[in-house]
Simulated assay, not measured.
Amino acid sequence: MDLYFSPMACSMATRIAAYEAGAQINFLRVDTRASPKRVEDGTAFLSLNPMGQVPVLRADDGELIFENPVILQYVADRFPAAGLIPAEGAERRRVQKWLSFIGSELHTGVFIALLDPKAPEGAKAFARAAAAPRLAVLDAHLTGREFLQGRFSVADAYLFVMLTWARHVALDLTPYPALAAYRDRLQARPSVARALGEEFTLFKAAA
């Protein structure tokens, strides 16, 4: 499998999942600042994903898989022994619920505007206001829990990336102590610490 990624982007969640599963994945860096965007091997990235967004996963059979929640579930299902998503039933749907929540309510609903240097200040202010009730939901859910749902899952990997972005845009988690403690616990997890260290080093080198 090949993962097309950009350092500190949401593709880091798949790197975390791969390390959790002990999966062999080739990481191919995409220069999202180039025009047009290019993969490190010279491939035009738009020829792989017309939206120009990471992650993209090339499966062993050559299939190109798009969209972060879909890729995360694919990796989890490909390596079931890691237990990154339940195989079926209500427990699986609960993990899928959190993947959807993170993708729509946080990734798109909050961080797209906060991370986009071209977004107007009004959009950024709206996103910051929108963050509060969403973070409160997570904080309430994580009170007394170690992970989002039972054991560590791909939803936790995805949420951790969002919480690293919160630091980057100075989104204060102090009002959400359970969420802040959760972030700190995950950051100490070996797979997370490894992925974060590698990607932050790449990100800083390109800055």
Rank of each mutant, 00 (worst) to 15 (best):
A180Y: 03
S11Y: 12
R183F: 08
D61N: 15
L99V: 11
T32Y: 00
G144W: 05
V30G: 00
R167V: 10
A181G: 11
L57W: 09
W98E: 03
P7C: 10
R151A: 15
R145G: 02
L114M: 11
F79R: 02
F27P: 08
T108E: 13
V75G: 08
D184N: 12
L196Q: 07
W98H: 03
Y158C: 04
E40C: 07
E121V: 11
E121I: 11
W98M: 02
F152A: 05
A195F: 09
A136C: 01
G144R: 06
R38S: 12
A119I: 05
I65Q: 02
A130C: 09
V169W: 11
L114P: 08
A207P: 00
R94F: 00
A205Q: 14
R167Y: 02
P50R: 13
F5P: 03
A13H: 07
S6M: 06
I102F: 04
A81R: 13
T43L: 09
T164E: 14
T14L: 13
V56F: 02
M12Y: 01
R128D: 08
F203R: 15
Y158T: 07
R94I: 00
A207T: 12
L173Y: 10
K124A: 03
A188C: 03
D60E: 15
R92N: 09
Y74N: 02
R38P: 04
A18K: 00
E40S: 13
K124V: 07
G89D: 02
L196G: 00
Q96Y: 01
H168D: 13
V154H: 08
A131F: 11
A193R: 15
N26T: 15
A23F: 04
R145S: 04
H168M: 13
A90H: 06
D41P: 11
A76N: 10
F147E: 01
Q149V: 05
P86R: 01
A129K: 14
W165I: 09
P190Y: 10
E63L: 14
D60S: 12
F101R: 02
A119P: 03
L142V: 12
Q187W: 00
R33F: 08
D156P: 13
V192E: 00
